[in-house]
Write a protein that binds this DNA or RNA. Structure first.
Lengths: 113, 113
DNA sequence: TTAACATATAAACATTTTTTGATTTGATTG
DNA sequence: CAATCAAATCAAAAAATGTTTATATGTTAA
């Protein structure tokens, strides 16, 4: 039961829902997520950890960077995330997506990743 | 987005999940729920309110009593609750269901309801 | 190997949620 | 209408979560 609760808890926070929205666009590293959500690094790390403990995301370490992405190994979580995401209008993400776009194009001219 | 969050928040608590499990057996009044979950009345009222604010349950007033039941008017909530309930083994509810049984049979010999 | 960078962690603090005990409200019954 | 019962509400205490600032860890590159 605690496992189930941890999943719902992870989903009951605006920052974390926004993170999942960003993850839907693809894998992203912590430093980019900090830029995109325009907040502090420890705060991002804290929320990433909550999502990870709930089994909603996974990480991939590569050199200095840690890339996070949606963990789609579990059907129930997968469905929960999808249906939650569907409920959040893209309008709630305008600023963030615009920063994401910026970050990604800079990326193409190489940096991490 | 806050509405979505309120739903997940409502679902991220053991007492409230147990309440929903009880509601799956049918409508129940506050005083019976207090007996079944074996806790204080204000605590029950508090959690009922959280579930109600999230749109997961509805109430029906009848004389002195208030009967609560699952609100199945919204598809998304309906599905969430069903899939959450499925994840909770009946073993987690043994004591509660046994008290529920008792309460319901006493009921038949009339009291509230 | 030192400097710089990415991320995690920790401690202190702030905020939110939950619990408790007392009280209130509303309805029924004697 | 006084007594009783069900339920809600409130204020204060307790517990859990989230934020911040500072620091630690691990990696890469100069």
């Amino acid at each position: 039961m605690q496992e189930l609760i941890s999943v719902f808890k992870a989903l009951s926070d605006e920052t974390r829902l926004k993170m999942l929205k960003v993850f839907q666009k693809g894998e992203i590293c912590v430093c980019d997520l900090v830029s995109v959500l325009d907040t502090s690094q420890p705060r991002i790390s804290f929320h990433l950890n909550v999502l990870k403990e709930a089994g909603l995301i996974k990480d991939r370490k590569q050199g200095k960077w840690v890339h996070y992405s949606i963990d789609d190994s579990d059907m129930f979580r997968r469905f929960l995330v999808l249906s939650a995401m569907e409920k959040i209008p893209d309008g709630a993400m305008t600023e963030d997506f615009s920063r994401l776009k910026k970050v990604l194009t800079v990326k193409n001219k190489s940096r991490c990743g």
